[in-house]
Nucleic acid binder design. Structure first.
Lengths: 109, 109
DNA sequence: ATAATATGCAACCTATTGGTTGCATGTAAA
DNA sequence: TTTACATGCAACCAATAGGTTGCATATTAT
């Protein structure tokens, strides 16, 4: 199962964390040390971001000796897409049309 | 065009604001007063949430006399789905399989 | 005209977030 | 068996978020 939807949304709300996800998407299974590179902050700060991603189950980790490997979990993003995004996508064109007419019709400034 | 992606993600990061979107999705064009009902906070607090939604272009407003009507704009959600979510959805099954084998194979606690 | 309604704006308070530094611990390499 | 490396943990700090109260303003109803 996927984590609390709110935790997922909150985890995705920071560009630093989305960047970490993007980097895992490009190269899965990286260590903390690798993920720290190119991040403009201390290792400890990166750890905190990864902790939030883990608590949202967006990232899972495995120890290999003294190194911690990080893997992307695609489930929560899929769940958000299915349960939340799709609901809005269904009436997208209708809502867009309504928006247009309302803005044109009633607004004068 | 859609707003800054980061503003959209941040706007979606609070359950109160997602609830407001849901309520507009169910009944578009509501006034501030209507939207305040069932929200367990002051009108001014709701206004602040709606301001963030507006700045993310998730909501557009129209004045009708002394009332302010709020309309859903489906564009930013669509953009997030297309530009961001889909990227992860493409390799979903591959990533899931990789995750499984890594967790089973290398982790012992 | 006056009163009621719908909203905006600003100051303020507290909790949370996002970063830091410093130190401890377990693993690998010399 | 030291030394270096990869990471964790905790205290601390500044900035931001999320709420409040109080007051101002414009529109509608009486």
């Amino acid at each position: 199962m996927s984590a609390d939807v709110d935790k997922v949304f909150k985890a995705l709300a920071a560009p630093e964390r989305r960047l970490l996800l993007d980097r895992l998407h490009a190269d899965n299974g990286q260590t903390l040390g690798q993920l720290c590179q190119q991040m403009n902050m201390t290792r400890q700060a990166v750890t905190k971001h990864l902790k939030l991603l883990e608590e949202a189950t967006l990232v899972a980790t495995v120890w290999r000796g003294r190194e911690k490997l990080h893997f992307l979990n695609p489930v929560p993003i899929h769940d958000i897409a299915e349960r939340w995004i799709d609901k809005y996508e269904r009436d997208r064109l209708r809502a867009l049309a309504e928006l247009k007419t309302k803005l044109e019709g009633e607004n004068n400034g």
